[in-house]
């Protein structure tokens, strides 16, 4: 599934204009602990989190994640978006709680085994 398909079906708000939304999403991950994401998130996964600070971008880039979705309408810090654009990491937001977002991603067929 392509990232833009997720953006459309979940009505996500894309915060990084110009980010590549054609990349393939091969799974999902949800966590608010950076060490956990570094340790366990699979490459190609879309990452659902409440963490909005700068370090999420580096973690997503390091792990080759397809993108970051901030739940609960969490507003990314200014520096986070700037760095995300520089590193070509798509950042999206949603008003849904993480549980609901993950439920819908799961219903679309994404898994994290």
């Amino acid at each position: 599934m392509k990232l833009f398909e997720l953006v459309e079906s979940l009505s996500l708000d894309v915060k990084t204009p110009g980010a590549d939304l054609t990349r393939e999403v091969t799974g999902g991950y949800v966590s608010d602990l950076l060490s956990d994401v570094i340790g366990h998130a699979p490459e190609g996964a879309v990452w659902v989190t409440l963490q909005a600070h700068l370090n999420i971008v580096a973690v997503a880039s390091l792990k080759g994640l397809a993108g970051i979705i901030l739940a609960n309408n969490r507003v990314p810090e200014e520096g986070t978006l700037k760095k995300a654009s520089e590193m070509n990491v798509p950042v999206m937001t949603s008003g849904l709680p993480a549980f609901e977002l993950v439920g819908r991603l799961y219903a679309l067929g994404l898994r994290c085994r």
Binding site: L33, S35, A52, R74, V75
Partner: peptide, 17 residues
């Protein structure tokens, strides 16, 4: 909301967000 000076180890404990 979201402003924090907490060090990383506090964030990893689930606080300081």
């Amino acid at each position: 909301e979201g402003y924090s000076t907490a060090p990383d180890y506090i964030r990893e404990m689930g606080f300081g967000s």
